[in-house]
C-alpha cells in the first residue's frame, strides 16, 4: 500500500475516533433540545469541568472508575443547575434569553476553572496500557479506543434507558407533546430537568475520555462547544445514529485537512461544511422538517 494513503487513513481513523467524542457532546444537545427546545451554549464548559472534576478525584488517589463516576455525578448536577438558573425562566417567557444566559454561565465556569485548577493544560492519568494497537498498518492508542467505546457505550445506555424504562418513555412523551404528557400525570418540569442532568452527565463523561488524548485545560471548552454544535446541526437534532456519523466525518475531515493544509487550517473545512449544511438543510441531514402553524 502506498505510504501517503496509509498516512491519510491513519489520520482519518484517529480523527474519526476523536469525532465520536464530539458526537457524545452533541448527544447532550440532542437530549436537552428534545425535552425543552433549548441547548446549552456552555456545553463545552461542562465537558471541561467534568474533566477537571475527574482529574481532581484521581489525584486524590481514588481509583479510575470511581473518579469517572464522580465526574459524571458532578456533570449531572451541573447540567441540572444550568437548566434551573439559565434556561427555565427564559423558556417560560418564550424568549431566547437562554442563549445569552448559558453563554454567561459558561463564562463563569471558565473563570472558576482558571482559578481553581490553573490556566495551564494538564495530563489526565488513565489505567490504560502504554503503546498502540495496530490494524492493517493503522495504529490506534488505548485512550483513543476508550473514546470510541465510551461514547458508544454511554449513548447506547441512554438510548436503551429512553426506550426500556418508564422514566425514559415519559421523557420522550414530554418532548413529543408537553401538554399531553402533563395530562398523563407526568411532571414535565422534572422530565426536562432529568434530560439536562443526563446531558450534563454525558458531557462530563466526554471530558474524562477526551482529556487523556488532549490534556485538560480551561481553553478546551470553546472549541468543543463549536465542534459538538457542528455535529448536532449537521446531523439534525433527532437522530443519534446521525450524530455518530457526522461526528466521525467531522473528526476525520479535521485531521485530514490539518495534514494536507497545515495544522492551522484543520477546523476550516468543517466550518464551511457546517454553514453550507445549515443553509441547504436547516433541519439537518437526518432531521425532520418542522411544520409552521398559525
Amino acid at each position: 500500500m502506498n505510504t501517503e494513503f496509509l498516512a491519510l487513513a491513519q489520520m482519518a481513523v484517529g480523527g474519526g475516533l476523536m469525532g465520536m467524542a464530539y458526537a457524545l457532546v452533541a448527544y447532550g444537545f440532542q437530549l436537552t433540545h428534545a425535552a425543552g427546545k433549548a441547548v446549552n451554549f456552555g456545553q463545552g464548559e461542562l465537558v471541561m469541568l467534568g474533566a477537571f472534576a475527574g482529574l481532581s478525584l484521581s489525584t486524590a488517589a481514588l481509583p479510575y472508575w470511581v473518579s469517572v463516576s464522580g465526574a459524571m455525578a458532578v456533570g449531572a448536577a451541573l447540567g441540572w443547575f444550568v437548566e434551573r438558573t439559565a434556561v427555565r425562566l427564559a423558556l417560560q417567557q418564550r424568549n431566547e434569553g437562554w442563549i445569552l444566559l448559558t453563554i454567561i454561565v459558561g463564562l463563569f465556569a471558565v473563570s472558576a476553572a482558571e482559578n481553581i485548577w490553573g490556566r495551564e493544560d494538564k495530563p489526565f492519568p488513565t489505567p490504560w496500557p502504554e503503546g498502540a494497537l495496530e490494524f492493517f498498518g493503522i495504529s490506534v492508542t488505548w485512550p483513543e479506543l476508550a473514546i470510541a467505546a465510551g461514547a458508544l457505550g454511554i449513548m447506547t445506555l441512554v438510548e436503551l434507558a429512553k426506550r426500556y424504562t418508564m422514566a425514559g418513555i415519559a421523557v420522550q412523551a414530554v418532548s413529543a407533546d408537553q401538554d399531553a404528557a402533563e395530562l398523563c400525570g407526568i411532571r414535565s418540569r422534572s422530565a426536562i430537568s432529568l434530560s439536562w442532568a443526563i446531558s450534563g452527565m454525558s458531557a462530563a463523561f466526554a471530558g474524562t475520555i477526551i482529556a487523556p488524548v488532549t490534556t485538560v485545560g480551561p481553553t478546551m471548552a470553546a472549541s468543543l462547544t463549536l465542534k459538538a454544535f457542528s455535529v448536532a446541526v449537521v446531523a439534525g437534532l433527532d437522530s443519534s445514529f446521525g450524530l455518530l456519523l457526522a461526528g466521525i466525518a467531522l473528526g476525520a475531515t479535521e485531521n485530514i485537512s490539518g495534514f494536507l493544509l497545515g495544522s492551522g487550517w484543520r477546523e476550516a473545512p468543517g466550518l464551511i461544511l457546517l454553514i453550507l449544511a445549515l443553509a441547504l438543510r436547516p433541519q439537518g441531514l437526518f432531521g425532520k422538517k418542522i411544520i409552521r402553524k398559525v
Binding site: 418508564m166 418513555i169 420522550q172 413529543a176 407533546d177
Partner: peptide, 28 residues
Amino acid sequence: PEGRHVFVPLSVEENLLLGAYPRLPSFG
C-alpha cells in the same frame, strides 16, 4: 384532549403505558 394529542413518535403500546404513568414503576 381536543385534537387527540397522541404521542406521535411513540408506539401504540407506549402511548397506552404512559396513560398509566403515575402508578407504574419508573424503572423495572
